[in-house]
Amino acid sequence: METLKPLGQYLAVMLLSPLLPGVINRVKAFFGGRRGRPLLQLYSDLYKLTRKTPVYSRTTTWVFRAGPVIGVSAMLTALAVLPFAGRPSFLAFDGDFIFLIYLLGLARFATVLAALDTGSAFEGIGASREMQFAVFAEPAFFLGLAALARVTGHTSLSAMFGALTEDIWRTAAPVLALLTASFFIVLLAENSRVPADDPDTHLELTMIHEVMALDHSGPDLACILYGAALKFWVFGALIACMVLPRHSGSWFSDSALFLLVMLATAAAVGVVESVIARLRLIKVPYMLITAFAFSALALIFQMGR
């Protein structure tokens, strides 16, 4: 039974992650006074897309076809090192937070290469912007995880969040609060949510992430959409593990609470999207530099203790 639990958690993540974008959309619709799409819309979209025949442009090469597959498999690997409800994952090893960051980098690299492979000017714009923001988001994320490693004294994600107890929150509350804020900003930017990018926009000139997926169709597009949902889960799980330091010992109640916090995180993203407008493109790096400053401050505080 004990060996089955991590596997069960992994399967649960794979099944549940497309639910979160649905939650965000419902919250946004609620704020807009609409009913919104069904909660399970992404599942039907994915099912529909997998049955379609993909269309490939004659100018594209194998790089274009490999992009979505590499993207989604990098995310699936990332989920294998990610703790679930503060419980260790089955692939945990020392220093796996660096592995996680490189997997995110690999997924981004594959998506950008696939976008550039189409030779379309719009996709080039999207790729350039994606990379530009990643330059600011990655140091913030890396420094944040390094500060967390320093707080807990472990270098594996599972051990880090496993060691995060209420006592640590009591003594190092400022550090952890700063880190949570920093991770939330990085979540918004990395998942192309509103202050950085509008996932619902359909004007190529203003899109960032979506424009890179314009030429993908059928199962490839399904891979990209599913990979985006998994990526949201990765960042959401980091925040949920952070704000949920209590481990009652009961696997069932821990997991239920964790899922509830994940839904709350998605709802929070929906609220943020509803109440603030998208930033001007040149202001987005400022927001990410703020996240970097939060992470750096947290690290300095922890060193100065």
């Binding site: 009591r170 003594t171 509350a173 400022p174 609060a177 700063l178 401050l297 505080f301």
Partner: peptide
């Protein structure tokens, strides 16, 4: 801890 939070707020 509360005073520390205020210090962080000042920064």
């Amino acid at each position: 801890t509360f005073a520390e939070l205020i210090i962080v707020f000042v920064i």
